[in-house]
Design a protein around this nucleic acid. Sequence first.
DNA 1: ACCTGAACACCGTTCAAGT
DNA 2: ACCTGAACACCGTTCAAGT
Lengths: 207, 207
Amino acid sequence: MRDGEAEDEPVTSTRERLVESAAALLAAGGPAAVTLRDVGHSAGVSHNAPYKHFASKQELLAAVAAAELRRSRDRLVRVRRGRPAVQAVRLILHGYVRQAHEHPELFRLVYGPWRTDSPELAEAADAARSALVDTVTAAQSDGDLPPGDPDRLAALLLALAHGAAELALAGHLARDGKGHADPADLIDDLFAQLTGPPVPTPETSPR
Amino acid sequence: MRDGEAEDEPVTSTRERLVESAAALLAAGGPAAVTLRDVGHSAGVSHNAPYKHFASKQELLAAVAAAELRRSRDRLVRVRRGRPAVQAVRLILHGYVRQAHEHPELFRLVYGPWRTDSPELAEAADAARSALVDTVTAAQSDGDLPPGDPDRLAALLLALAHGAAELALAGHLARDGKGHADPADLIDDLFAQLTGPPVPTPETSPR
DNA sequence: ACCTGAACACCGTTCAAGT
DNA sequence: ACCTGAACACCGTTCAAGT
């Protein structure tokens, strides 16, 4: 899409450095720590140079989110190769909650409420989502997931992963010793329900 | 308003008015619109009178969230009466996503990320959660939900409802006509999985 | 005990220039 | 085409008083 730029440009552009600085500040101190003054200074420019590349702070954060969504989609496509689709789906969902745990601020930025509508962001989100839907469809064809609208089944899986990750981040998932279930456990619980009851039929034919 | 000199009258205190003002501003314009200046002015006091009742803006918002959680728990207890527990659980979860749809800003405040740890908030959240767990436990006793750790099953249900509500708010649930599933549909899908496959054995009905 | 008005240290954004 | 420095309009928070 960027065929207007020469590809042999090893120098990171100011724009790229701004996005990286914003991501670093976000990870370190949450959204409150992402001030345009610090972003600019950390990228080696003045406090309002960002406005030459982004219309507002929101647009800069949208670029951070879009970059993460593109990386996410790449991971998704990579995990798909060399294993059954149903296993790929499970790994994808586990990766989703792991990402939330390891990079909570970035996770909240990407999957949290968006008050802007950046086309770049919408496009990246759609690409990531459709990659999941494709894998779910393949798992259905293999007979490893129940039939039905793949969009809807993917939405069910994604909603659970998202909700489990967020409840865990908020500390609403079992604070006491009893009944502690981490997000990965909940995903496995749903998979156990979807792929068959605890005592499935011993037949080998799919479905 | 003040018709007597008794200390404890049902007259709305300044503190209560501050909480109500904050809730109204939040609903109208999101968290950015909740400025302490507007909260104070809207409650008929100065711009920093809130500091005489709350240590910070976060604490004021925590009081707004706690009040909503208490109302939520009351609704939960009320819906429990006069119907089978499994139906109550379904209504509770549907109410959860409906609340997210009708009062998105309040929903995000209550169930979103908390960087403070107000005891009042934690207590209200625990009370609401345990009311759900109780109902789930009753539904399991009725044989209407699968057995197992009720905390974990409740977490599964709540995670799905939460994730579905948030994805819907973010517009990540089916923008096109095909495969559009609203959060309530996803909840019903999960219930269909949990309460039994489409064609269960008609024998051995418990109760 | 509760409240006010001024003040401080920010932060997003805009503007008039600079190269 | 990209960047700077000053400036503006905020906002959370603190402080010294007022009743």
